[in-house]
Simulated assay, not measured.
Amino acid sequence: MSESRGGRWSSGTEAVRRLGVRYPIVQGPFGGGLSTAKLAATVSNLGGLGSFGAHILSPDEIFQVTKDIRSLTPNPFAMNLWVSDHDPGGLELSPEEFERVWALFEPYYRELGVPKPERPQRYTYRFEEQVDALLEARPPVFSFVFGVPSATILAECRKRGIVTAGAATSIAEARALDDAGVDLIVATGFEAGGHRPSFLARAEDSLMGTLALTPLVADRVKAPVISAGGIGDGRGIKAVLTLGAQAAQLGTAFLACEESGASPAHRAALFSDQSEHTALTRAFTGRLARGLRNRWSDEVGRVAQLPPFPIQSWFASQLKPAAIQAGRTDLVSLWSGQIAPNLRHRTTPALMESLIRELES
């Protein structure tokens, strides 16, 4: 079970000690090009745990990014992968199936002036290849979502001194991670932006809030708990520490900072009235994720049967560069958690300074 609740965080928690950081602050990992080495290193240099979402990277890119972050900070940081890299039917499409899926997206490609893409040899990199590269790169922390790595992989992490952290959206998932010997468990409430990392039940059936999930998990596992979802300031961190978490993971607050890979238009949207309207949708990737509502989520979200992940994600991603260049935030994913209307800081140093000050008050 977790350490006793209500104690001062500054005395240190087991999670803080295992991570090797100064403060119980974890930057959430972002996929899709939204993570940057600069963001991760800045958070780590300021006493938190910076993270990099690497699930779209090739093995060579994983090795290089790990090297890049290490060159920018001497402190611990995390590399994040998706254990489950595809849903049923998501590895390949026949030429006929490709044409049927293309028909769904053709109007948006035509609107943006993007030519029809060639049918790819692969829609994603496989986890098995990526994790081999990660183990070779040996980041201080390996965080993961959508499942539990094999016992062999976890044993290799222990052998190499890599701390492991896995995401859970339910009591059952937290127990599965704990039984496997994962070092830290990230209890992820449905308020969080980005993907719902459920792996034992449908994401739609695993929508527990952070303030309920945190004590339920902390009371039932041996591993220290990191709480995620709807946390954007020191008050949120203190709240989850009181409920049994030993650290807090913040995503949207860091995504809004200029050091992230978010486009200027995405960051602007996070600070606008649009931030009051988020939705859980499979429209962007084929997996359930929370982002700001826009035309794409409304129109594509109404399609009865979307292609599985990562095929849906691949078709949407081919449009992203043109949409961003044209300033078309109505046709790209704008990941955001429900806490976005309370965002105040536009740089990582300003955010970290505020979080630390609130924690110490």
Rank of each mutant, 00 (worst) to 15 (best):
G166M: 01
F271N: 01
F77Q: 02
P115W: 12
P215S: 12
S313C: 13
R196T: 10
L19S: 07
I311M: 13
S94M: 03
A323Y: 13
G251E: 12
G47N: 11
K116H: 06
I62Q: 01
A279W: 03
R70S: 14
G193C: 12
W102T: 02
W102K: 06
G48P: 12
A155R: 15
R175H: 05
S58M: 11
N45C: 14
L200R: 05
H345K: 13
G230N: 13
T281P: 01
E259C: 08
V16F: 08
G232C: 14
L241H: 02
A223P: 02
A155G: 15
L334E: 10
W314G: 04
P310W: 06
A165D: 09
R110T: 11
G327K: 07
E360K: 15
E97N: 00
I226N: 05
S150Q: 13
V148G: 07
E3H: 05
R202F: 05
G209M: 04
G28T: 01
T66Y: 02
L200P: 00
L351T: 09
K67S: 12
W296F: 15
G181E: 08
R5A: 11
W82T: 03
N342Q: 12
E111R: 15
R302P: 07
V16P: 04
T188R: 14
K238R: 15
P120W: 03
R295Q: 10
S227T: 09
F271K: 02
E276W: 03
T329Q: 10
A247C: 11
S333Q: 01
P115H: 09
Q246P: 08
R346I: 11
F98P: 00
Q338R: 03
P120F: 02
